[in-house]
């Protein structure tokens, strides 16, 4: 059917439905990380002492800094949505850009943190790590996998937010049609929320 008059298909818009779908998706994300928190709980219960010893080696300073960065970025993305609702396109763009900047800062810190660990010979399969007791191997296995998967979510979040930035600039997202931005904001809050659980579990409980 190449004739355009045959394209009777209506594009259907339903903001409530779109948000419902997003919440369901976030729910599956929570369960995905929930599986890992479950594994963490089982092994922490099995090796409480070794988990404590291993956790002492993590850099609490850098972890705290990243927590502050990520929490603030959650604020700026929420403000960006509020700015859009109030028809202030410029402010919305500015706040969204700041959010993306924060996200990149988080990843840079993560890079330094991981490479410091690598230089001490602590990485999966390394001789240094394999010579340690089982509980510590498991702790670092979980540390790399959980913060790694979270980092992957941060990267995906940055990509989504960049798309939103382009949509705002091109007026695809406007003050009366901003559900995409809102859903991206929800995703970003989830990334933040997961970090709020990861941070104490790895850095603070000692």
């Amino acid at each position: 059917m190449t004739h355009s008059e045959n394209a009777v298909y209506h594009v259907h818009r339903d903001d409530v439905g779109a948000k419902m779908g997003m919440w369901l998706f976030l729910f599956t994300e929570v369960l995905l990380f929930g599986g890992m928190f479950l594994i963490y709980a089982v092994y922490r219960y099995q090796f409480p002492d070794q988990f404590r010893v291993a956790a002492m080696e993590l850099n609490t300073g850098i972890g705290t800094l990243n927590t502050v960065i990520l929490l603030t970025s959650s604020l700026t993305v929420a403000l960006s949505i509020a700015a859009m609702q109030k028809k202030n396109k410029f402010l919305s763009i500015l706040l969204l850009s700041i959010t993306i900047l924060f996200a990149l800062m988080f990843m840079v810190n993560k890079y330094f943190e991981w490479s410091a660990k690598f230089s001490h010979g602590i990485y999966p399969g390394s001789e240094e790590l394999l010579n340690r007791p089982d509980g510590q191997i498991l702790f670092y296995g979980l540390y790399y996998v959980m913060t790694g998967l979270h980092g992957l979510h941060v990267i995906i979040g940055v990509i989504i937010l960049i798309f939103m930035l382009v949509f705002i600039i091109r007026n695809k997202i406007t003050f009366n049609n901003y559900v995409k931005l809102e859903n991206s904001g929800l995703y970003w809050h989830l990334v933040d929320l997961i970090w709020i659980f990861l941070f104490p579990l790895f850095y603070l409980i000692q």
Partner: peptide, 10 residues
């Protein structure tokens, strides 16, 4: 070679 399930790695 991350240790999660393999009994050789605890």
């Amino acid at each position: 070679g991350v240790g999660i399930f393999d009994p050789a790695l605890g």
